[in-house]
Structures are given as structure tokens and as C-alpha cells.
């Protein structure tokens, strides 16, 4: 019987080791894999490279790993908030690295990583400091920069409902980077609010097909 279910978030992240590269779904507080991140914090692994829209805020999600000094580098689109965060303080003190990426380029690099695409040309970033050092190309009179795919050892994502085959659906804006990140890691771990029987999810409505998901853990509704 195919069963990708794990009994707990701790069991699902047990083989994530020091130095791992990890994608974290979520936008702000919306759709972050909080229980998996909590489990990673309990494991205490260090020197992690994280890929996430934000670098954590408010003592939740990636912020916990930053405060624990488990993060070595972040690839992110929106690291600076209105008020300074622990990540910003560590970055300005030279204690963590940052690769800043425009949000659409971030999403597309992950999509490329999961879709076997070796890179893509985009106008985004042309004429800005972010284009420095990147291959430039003019196509039909328009200037583009080359962006390369992103992949990770693990992707940690949050979904609304899933089944033991790993099929997932999301809710509202909690979907954000989940569908792309699920495709772009060697091991994708999904926490779901509700685990349902195989066949219960309408195949027409499945957003992430189970082929992309390696482990699934039911965590209940977020508090």
C-alpha cells in the first residue's frame, strides 16, 4: 500500500542534517509550514540554506530558525520588514548571507528547478543592481537577463488537505509558493490540516499531484 504519511512532524524531518538546503513555503505568516519548522528547530540542525519569500518575522516560521542561529544563508525576496528583524540584524552584522531575488524571478526559478528547465531569460531586474554579473541577451529588441533554476534538498510546505498518495489542495493565499516548491526538491514534505481518504479529493481540483510529494503529516488546523 502506498502510504506517504508520517506519524509526526519530528519523524518527517528526522533525516534533515546540518548544511541542508531547504525551501520553505509561505508568504508572511500565510501558508508557512509552522509545525515542520518547529520540528526542525527542535532537531537543532545548523548551517542551513533557506529559500523563502520572507526571512521570518514575529517569532514564527523561519524567524525561529534565524533566532536559533540555524540559518547560514537565505535566498529571499522580502527580507527587510518595516521594523528590523533578527535576520536583518544578523545580516548587517555579517553573520548570515542573503541572496535577494525579485518575487516573480524567485517563483520562476523554483518552477524551472522542478520542471527540468536549465534557466530562462527575463526582463525583470534589467537596469538594476540585480542584473550585475548576469548574462544579458537581447531578443527581438528587448533586453533580458539569464536566471538559473533553484533546487533544494528538502521542500517544507503547508497545504489544506491531502491524502496518503501526497495529492494536495490549498486554501486561499496560503497556496503561494507551495505548488512550485513541491516540485523542486529532492524530498518534499507537506504538512496538511486534514488528511483525507484516497479518492476524496476531486481529481479536477488537485493542485499538487502526489508524484511531487514524498512525505505527508497531518498537523490539524493552525491555531
Amino acid at each position: 500500500m502506498v502510504n506517504k504519511c508520517y506519524p509526526s512532524a519530528d519523524a518527517a524531518v528526522r533525516d534533515i542534517g546540518d548544511g541542508a538546503t531547504i525551501m520553505f513555503g509561505g508568504f508572511g505568516f500565510c501558508g508557512i509550514p509552522e509545525r515542520l519548522i518547529d520540528a526542525l528547530a527542535r532537531r537543532g540542525v545548523k548551517n542551513l540554506t533557506g529559500m523563502s519569500n520572507n526571512c521570518g518575522l514575529g517569532g514564527r516560521g523561519v524567524d525561529i530558525l534565524v533566532r536559533n542561529r540555524q540559518i547560514r544563508k537565505m535566498v529571499a525576496t522580502f527580507p527587510a520588514q518595516r521594523e528590523p528583524t533578527p535576520f536583518e540584524e544578523q545580516y548587517l552584522a555579517g553573520q548570515v548571507e542573503l541572496e535577494l531575488v525579485p518575487q516573480g524571478t524567485f517563483a520562476e526559478r523554483i518552477r524551472a528547478g522542478g520542471a527540468g528547465v536549465g534557466g530562462f531569460y527575463t526582463r525583470t531586474g534589467v537596469g538594476t543592481p540585480l542584473a550585475e554579473g548576469k548574462e544579458r541577451r537581447v531578443i527581438a529588441g528587448v533586453e533580458y537577463v539569464l536566471e538559473l533554476p533553484l533546487r533544494a534538498d528538502f521542500a517544507l510546505i503547508h497545504a489544506y488537505r491531502g491524502d496518503r498518495y501526497g495529492n494536495l489542495i490549498y486554501r486561499g493565499t496560503a497556496r503561494n509558493f507551495g505548488p512550485e516548491m513541491a516540485t523542486a526538491a529532492d524530498v518534499t514534505i507537506a504538512e496538511v490540516e486534514e488528511l483525507v481518504e484516497v479518492g476524496e479529493l476531486n481529481p479536477e481540483a488537485v493542485i499538487t499531484p502526489g508524484i511531487y510529494v514524498d512525505r505527508i503529516v497531518a498537523v490539524g488546523k493552525a491555531s
Binding site: F78, L98, V101, Q103, G104, L130
Partner: peptide, 10 residues
């Protein structure tokens, strides 16, 4: 010393 881009560049 640090900024946030989000979707603006796209």
C-alpha cells in the same frame, strides 16, 4: 543596508 523587492521589479 538591506532592502526588500517583493514583486515590484516584475
Amino acid at each position: 543596508g538591506v532592502g526588500s523587492i517583493g514583486g515590484a521589479m516584475d
